[in-house]
């Protein structure tokens, strides 16, 4: 069955999406705990973005992942597979039971997205910058064919320190990729600390504007704002960059804004505490 993207967000939709986010965050904790490996912080931080895309904005077809008219999504910050895999499983791309095989030998759920193996994964990413350039080639092909579907990509803010991102920024502008809606997950934290200490990115919006992109800045946890911004972005005649301000580790008190939780594995106690907080609220 085709899942049709929607424009309006009813109060019931909003409630459903919030509940889904809660479920996905629990799945993230469980996956990383079970695998003893994986990236929790950035996954929790981009949950609203990815859930809102797959469960409200995008038109797609989980039983037929190669359906030509589907909207495409690429996770260029490929380390955040826990959130992507949870969302894809919940949509029905593969059984939810597969999530317990994350990062295990023989699993189709690799540590970083691997397109040939996992239904619903559109591009192989993990080395930062690669997903971003890859989706440009996809979007350009569709634009030249006159196809109407959209291309969505999420980059990490640390990721955009890669020179390849700025190569792509020029390329998207040259070809006026108006079917491309990109996000940067702006949480100011990367593996070794605060982005502004490690390699400053601010002021970020003017950088993208000067590269010819239409730029929005939103609260990346506000589902209403995500929806209204994407709907507005579809009217752009240029590639769109949505700077989504987020909290790394969102939803778990001791993981929020703590760069140590970029790639750390929770103990049994931490995992239980996190799941409890997610159930009851911080």
């Amino acid at each position: 069955m085709v899942i049709e993207g929607k424009k309006e967000l009813s109060p019931a939709n909003l409630e459903d999406l919030k509940n889904l986010c809660k479920q996905v965050r629990k799945q993230i904790i469980n996956m990383v705990y079970q695998a003893s490996s994986g990236h929790i912080g950035g996954s929790l931080g981009s949950t609203e973005l990815i859930v809102t895309l797959y469960n409200h904005l995008m038109t797609h077809h989980p039983e037929n992942p190669d359906w030509d008219k589907r909207d495409r999504f690429v996770l260029s910050k490929g380390h955040c597979t826990p959130v992507l895999y949870a969302v894809l499983a919940n949509c029905g791309y593969f059984p939810k039971e597969d999530l317990s095989t994350f990062r295990r030998p023989g699993s189709h759920l690799q540590g970083h997205p691997y397109q040939p193996k996992t239904p619903g994964v559109e591009a192989t990413t993990g080395s930062l910058g690669i997903g971003f350039s890859t989706i440009l080639g996809m979007a350009l092909t569709a634009k030249n064919r006159g196809q109407k579907h959209y291309y969505y990509v999420i980059c990490g803010d640390g990721e955009i320190q890669e020179g390849q991102i700025w190569e792509g920024a020029m390329f998207a502008n040259k070809y006026k990729l108006d079917n491309l809606i990109a996000f940067v997950d702006r949480n100011y934290l990367q593996t070794d600390g605060n982005s502004e200490d490690i390699m400053p990115l601010d002021p970020l919006a003017p950088k993208w504007e000067s590269f010819g992109w239409k730029v929005y800045e939103i609260n990346g946890h506000d589902i209403q704002e995500i929806v209204s911004t994407v709907i507005s972005a579809k009217n752009s005649d240029r590639p769109v960059m949505i700077i989504a301000n987020t909290i790394k580790g969102k939803g778990v008190s001791f993981m929020e804004n703590a760069f140590g939780w970029h790639g750390a594995v929770p103990s049994k106690e931490d995992a239980d505490k996190a799941l409890k907080e997610l159930e009851n609220g911080i």
Binding site: I130, T134, L136, A139, Q164, G168
Partner: peptide, 19 residues
Amino acid sequence: CGIQEQNMLCVAAGMSLEG
């Protein structure tokens, strides 16, 4: 693609994903 070998190879990969 301009003087952007890294971007070019991945753009090509993206094009191949679209057939």
